[in-house]
Nucleic acid binder design. Structure first.
Lengths: 349, 349
DNA sequence: CATTAGAATGTTAACGTTAACACAAGTATA
DNA sequence: TATACTTGTGTTAACGTTAACATTCTAATG
C-alpha cells in the first residue's frame, strides 16, 4: 500500500464533496449526470483505485472467503479449489487460500488469521491430525459462517458438503464380491478423519451383507499415500501364501498405487493373483500397470456445492445447517479383473 | 463480519483507554505488567479477535499478497502454489488466490480487485491470451510491487522468476541429436507466451548448432494440452511415411502424452519408430506406455524464489528488478530410446 | 525538599470510506 | 400562492485501530 489516489483528491480537484464522489462512483441515484461524468473522468485520469479495506471497515463485508486446504498436492484438491475459485468469482468474491499441511496447529493459526482478516465465511477441510473440535465450535459460535468440505467435523453446528464415502466404499467392495473374491483385504486410514472411518464402515457393511468374514490381519492401516500403501501391502505379503487375499480394497487411489507396486515387485499379477481397487480416480489411475478400477469423486461439483452453501449461509442468517452428500460413480478398469487385455471377461457390473 | 468484540469493549470493561489495550495486546513497552495481564485475560474471556481490516487501514499494510494462476489443473501449478503459500506463511503473509483460466479479461479483473484490496504485492503468471502489457505497466507504475513467475512479461519493469526454458529445450533437443536422430519434429506453442517461444528458440538453436535442417512441416502448433498434442501429431502422421520424423520434441509433457497416444494408435512404436521427449516432468510422465524422457521443472523452488523476491521488493523500495532464471535437470526414461526394457542401450547421457 | 527522568496512561487525530441526516433549490400539487 | 415533494449536494459521525503527542504519577537525584 503506497501513496494512493483517494476519493478526497478527486473531490478537491473538482470542488465537490467526497460523498458526491462516492455516490457517483458507486452508481448511486441522486447525482447529476454531468457531475457524475466529471467525477468518473477525473477518477480515470488520476488512476483512482477504490480502497476496499476502508470500504470493508465501514460495510463490515470483505467479499473475501477463507479456504483451508490440508494438502494441495493431493490430486483431488486442485480441482476442488478451481471450482471454489470460479464459483466465488462468479459471485463477486475472492478467496484467501491457506494450507494446513495436515497439521492442526497450522490449521488453527490459519483460521485465526482468516477470522482476523474478517473473511465473510470459511471453507474448511479438517487436517489429518485434528483431535479436538473445540476450536471449530468456538469460531462457529462467534457467528462466522463455516462450511466443511470433503472432510467434515460433525456436531459442531456447521454445514458439510462431502462425498458419499460409505456408499462408495460399499459399492466398490460389492463390485469385488460380485467377482467372486471372498478373501478381501482393506488398506485403511483410521486416524481421526471421517473419510477413512466411513470408507471402512462401507467396506464392513458390504462384507457383512454378503456374509463374508472380516479378517483382522487383512485390515491394515495405510495412511493416505503411496508409501503407506506400499508398506501396508508388504505387511500382508509377508504372511504365508495361503493367507494372501484375493483382492484388496484401499482407502484411496494413492494407497492403491503403492499396494500395486508392492504386489508386482513380489512377482504377483494384478488382477490375476490379487485384484485391487481404489477410491478417488486420481489422474494416474488409468495409467497404472493394471489400470485401476476406482470410484470417481466429483471434485468440481463438490467445490461448487460447498461454496454455494457457504454463500447461502453468508447471505441468510437462517439458512439451515445441512449435511450434503454427493453421489459418486464407479469407474471400471482392469485392476478388478473385469477385463483381460482390453476384453471384458465377466458380467460383473 | 458480525457484531464482534472490539478493543473498546475490553477497555470499557476494565476502565482503561483503548490505547492501553492496543499496547498491551501488541506487546508494546510501557504497559504495567498487571494491567497487561488483566487486558490479556479479558480479551481471552470475551473472545476478542483483532480486526485486521482496521489495522490494515491505519498501517497501510495488509500482510496479504495476491497470486494469479492461469490454470490450477496444470500439474505444475499446485506445487508452485504450495511453495508460495508455505513461504508466505513463514513470513507472516497470506495469499489471495485468483484464477485467470488463461483469459486476459479475467486476469485484468483479478489484478484490479487485488489492487483494490490493497495486497502488499502480487505474483503474476501471464494468461495465454494476453496481448498487451499496458495494464501491467500501469499497475507497476502505481507502485504496487509485482513479480512475474514462470511466464513473464518483459520490459514492464518487474522482476521475473522463471525456468530456463531456452536452455532446457536446447538440452533435451541435443539429447535427441546425440541419439543420432536427424529428422526431429517440434510440437510447439507459439502464442503470445514467452515459454513457448523460448522453447522453440532452444530447439532451433540445438538443431542449427548440429547443422540439422528445420523442416517447416515438422514444426506444428500444438497448444499446451493433450488434445493439442494429439491433433498436431496426427497432422504429421498424415504425411507420407518417408516424411515421418525420427523423433519429436514437444513444448511440454501433456502435449507429449497426446502425441504418444497418436503414434501408438497408428500402430507405431515409441521410441523404436518415433522417439519422443517433453518438458515439465508431469506426475504422469513415468507412467506412460513408454515412460517419458523430459526436463524436470523445479516447481517448488520456483515458487519459493518468486515469493522471496516479491517480499524483497515489498520490504525494500530499492530492491533491483531482476530476471531470475532457475536451472533444470534432464530426466532420462525410455521414450527417447536410452533404455530398452529397462536396460540402457546406448551411451547418450 | 525541590527537581527531574522515566514509566504508565490518556487524548486527539488519522486511515478512506459510507450511512444517515440536513439543507437548498427547483418542481409539482392543492 | 402556499405547501409538499424531489433532486442534488453537503455535513457529521462512524467503522476499529494505531501514531504522536500530552499528561499524570512515581521514584530517584542533587
Amino acid at each position: 500500500m503506497s501513496r494512493r489516489v483517494t476519493a478526497k483528491m478527486i473531490a478537491d480537484e473538482l470542488g465537490v464533496s467526497v460523498m458526491t464522489v462516492s455516490r457517483a462512483l458507486n452508481n448511486r441515484p441522486n447525482v447529476d449526470e454531468k457531475t457524475r461524468e466529471l467525477i468518473v473522468n477525473m477518477a480515470q485520469k488520476l488512476g483512482y483505485i477504490p480502497n476496499h479495506v476502508a470500504k470493508s471497515l465501514v460495510l463490515k463485508k470483505t467479499h473475501t472467503i477463507g479456504v483451508v486446504v490440508p494438502e494441495i498436492s493431493i490430486s483431488f484438491f486442485p480441482d476442488v479449489i478451481k471450482a471454489i475459485e470460479e464459483t466465488a468469482y462468479g459471485a463477486g468474491y475472492q478467496i484467501i487460500l491457506t494450507h494446513s499441511s495436515e497439521s492442526m496447529e497450522r490449521e488453527t493459526y490459519a483460521i485465526q488469521t482468516l477470522a482476523s482478516k474478517r473473511v465473510d465465511g470459511m471453507l474448511l477441510c479438517t487436517a489429518a491430525d485434528v483431535k479436538s473440535y473445540e476450536f471449530y465450535k468456538q469460531i462457529i459460535r462467534s457467528g462466522l459462517p463455516v462450511v466443511f468440505y470433503d472432510r467434515c467435523a460433525f456436531g459442531v453446528g456447521a454445514s458439510c458438503v462431502r462425498i458419499n464415502d460409505e456408499q462408495s466404499a460399499e459399492t466398490i467392495t460389492n463390485h469385488l464380491i460380485k467377482h467372486g473374491y471372498k478373501k478381501i483385504a482393506h488398506l485403511a486410514s483410521l486416524n481421526s478423519l471421517s473419510v477413512g472411518q466411513s470408507r471402512f464402515t462401507g467396506f464392513k457393511k458390504a462384507m457383512q451383507e454378503s456374509h463374508l468374514p472380516l479378517i483382522d490381519d487383512l485390515i491394515v492401516e495405510a495412511g493416505f499415500d503411496e508409501a503407506g500403501g506400499y508398506k501396508a501391502m508388504l505387511q500382508i505379503l509377508n504372511y504365508s501364501r495361503e493367507e494372501y487375499p484375493n483382492a484388496v480394497m484401499t482407502v484411496n487411489d494413492p494407497v492403491a498405487f503403492g499396494a500395486m507396486q508392492a504386489i508386482l515387485e513380489r512377482g504377483l499379477r494384478v488382477p490375476e493373483d490379487i485384484a485391487i481397487v481404489g477410491i478417488v480416480d486420481d489422474i494416474r489411475a488409468e495409467l497404472m500397470p493394471s489400470p485401476l478400477t476406482t470410484i470417481r469423486q466429483p471434485a468440481h461439483d463438490l467445490g461448487v456445492r460447498a461454496l454455494q452453501k457457504l454463500l447461502a449461509h453468508i447471505e441468510n442468517k437462517n439458512e439451515p445447517v445441512e449435511d450434503i452428500v454427493i453421489d459418486t460413480e464407479i469407474v471400471i478398469r482392469e485392476s478388478c479383473g473385469c477385463f483381460n487385455r482390453g476384453k471384458k471377461i465377466d458380467g460383473a457390473s
